[in-house]
């Protein structure tokens, strides 16, 4: 099937098998390998991207469902030299170790903060429930999100 999807600001025209998952098309179809696959049951959230501005697990969306939409991946969140405040906060608060869950964690955080610019710790934990990390114990991820909120003009309660 033919799809037309804007990814990180570039418009792509492609023919895909109907069964192709969005994450596989991003990675193997157009080389957006910053977005990664961590499981096959939609539990881990490593593949989270923004689809028309809202976070989705790109392993649970078919590529054809993204037809006509705009996708933002970790690679399009900021250009190479600039840092999105969420990226800055994760570095500053040591919110990542191996970094494999990080693309999904960052994209989920962007969505979380767009919906709730002043989250409490409980709201942060609930908001990131769909993203698994095996390295950090979440302690510094929670701090990173709170700090990102601060950097973006909100303040955590």
């Amino acid at each position: 099937m033919h799809i037309s999807v804007s990814v990180d600001g570039t418009l792509y025209e492609a023919d895909v098998e109907p069964r192709t998952l969005l994450v596989h098309w991003l990675r193997e179809g157009i080389g957006k390998v910053g977005t990664v696959v961590g499981c096959d049951t939609s539990n881990c959230g490593a593949c989270t991207v923004l689809l028309d501005g809202r976070s989705v697990k790109s392993c649970s969306v078919l590529a054809v469902q993204a037809d006509g939409s705009s996708v933002t991946t970790i690679q399009g969140l900021s250009d190479g030299n600039e840092w999105h405040p969420v990226q800055t906060a994760f570095k500053e608060c040591h919110g990542l170790q191996c970094g494999y869950c990080t693309p999904g964690m960052v994209m989920s955080t962007v969505d979380l903060l767009s919906e709730n610019p002043n989250p409490t710790e409980a709201e942060i934990r609930e908001g990131l429930e769909g993203n698994l990390c095996r390295c950090t114990g979440y302690h510094n991820i929670v701090k990173s999100v709170a700090y990102a909120a601060e950097l973006m003009g909100g303040s955590t309660k």
Binding site: R27, G34, L77, G80, Q87, K91, H94, Y100
Partner: peptide, 21 residues
């Protein structure tokens, strides 16, 4: 000291084995 590793990990400029084609 904040980690050197983080810039590439936070920008998706990583080299996981599965990225190798």
């Amino acid at each position: 000291i904040r980690r050197k590793e983080d810039a590439r990990l936070l920008h998706g400029q990583t080299n996981w084995t599965d990225n190798i084609q």
